[in-house]
Design a protein around this nucleic acid. Structure first.
Lengths: 200, 200
DNA sequence: TACTTGACTACACGATCGTGTAGTAGTTTG
DNA sequence: CAAACTACTACACGATCGTGTAGTCAAGTA
């Protein structure tokens, strides 16, 4: 990050603090006073700049979405990312993802829209790479959810691995493991068909 | 469910209401008064039976974990489940999963312990089925997280599919899609190796 | 200089939170 | 029969919540 914290405007500091605290503690769990303290301003200034807590949340939604798209564009431009890479855990995206997941779980439309865009991106990716599942949409939705899963349960996964997956080393390890999931076929088509008949 | 709601003791009704509301709104988002109203009792009775909100949460943790293991045992006993089935979305497990995920995100040790047990179960499953990833532990952790992913983003996935995945029809559809993820290899081993070199 | 405007703070408001206290009704127990 | 215990309610407490109001201060503008 090339921006020093003290160089940011108060409004930006508030927004960054809100994304962080909302993401860490949930929307209900982070108070305006907490956010103001984190940003080093009075609680009244939060209201001055954003009007209400709900409006602050929407501003965070918008900002997080734009930043995520921006970061995604930059990383894919360098050509070192495929549609499957766990961009999710990239240091720049980390607090934004944390926030967006919380916001999704709280029913945010903006965050949900970003998920849907992700599904469509995966859909196009499978098409262009010649992957043809029977239910492309369902397949893409499952993959989009999977891309976020390791992130949502980062604490649990870290504990299982005995290694913090938010560090570069751990991030690489779980990334490799995730790749292996997509490399080793766990089931044969016959098994899947057999299961389908059994289910209801 | 063979138990009628009105037949449950007040304590059980409170616990069920707490699991439901904690799961839907998060721990901070559900007040003791909300839970009491949902259970049809006074807020004082919640305190009488559980002592404090934190103690109520721990009781819910314990109950949800036991019920999940119980349900899992019953379903696998019938022999119509493999280690990969999205038990996650089973009607019986649904509110429990909802709660456990929220509890995990709030740092619950009991819920995290359940996740770790899930990782170990997947580890044993891969071993007995002759699946040999380079990092078995990491592989199992990724799979454990994936099993929960579709569930966490059920609203988003439902919206992407235009079909509620908590209904039997939608549940089958996303289940099939998830199976396909494990059936179609997305990457070759060479691609994975190539990626590994690129990363850092 | 006088006026406006935007960033910012201090403080008080009603509501709601988790919790504490006191007490009632019904059953059990000696 | 009296004492004890359990399930349960009503109500009040201090703290904290989001929000509202009033005002300070600095910069720009006519």
């Amino acid at each position: 990050m090339d921006r020093a914290v003290e160089d940011l405007t108060a409004r930006a500091r508030i927004r960054d603090a809100a994304v962080r605290l909302f993401g860490e503690r949930g929307i209900e769990g982070a108070s305006i006073r907490d956010i103001a303290a984190e940003a080093g301003v009075s609680s009244g200034l939060v209201r001055h700049h954003f009007g209400s807590k709900e409006a602050l949340r929407e501003a965070c939604d918008q900002y997080a979405k734009e930043r995520m798209l921006q970061i995604g564009a930059e990383l894919t431009k360098d050509g070192n990312l495929t549609g499957l890479d766990p961009l999710t855990l990239h240091p720049l995206a980390f607090p934004l993802q944390l926030y967006l997941v919380r916001s999704m779980m709280d029913g945010s439309e903006t965050a949900t829209a970003l998920f849907l865009e992700g599904v469509e991106a995966v859909e196009e990716w499978t098409t262009s790479f010649g992957i043809n599942p029977k239910d492309r949409r369902g397949y893409a939705a499952a993959l989009a959810a999977i891309k976020l899963s390791v992130f949502v349960f980062r604490d649990q996964v870290s504990k299982a691995l005995g290694e913090d997956i938010t560090t570069p080393a751990g991030y690489n390890r779980i990334g490799q493991a995730l790749m292996e999931v997509f490399t080793i076929p766990l089931l044969t088509q016959e098994q899947v068909d057999h299961m389908r008949k059994q289910e209801k």
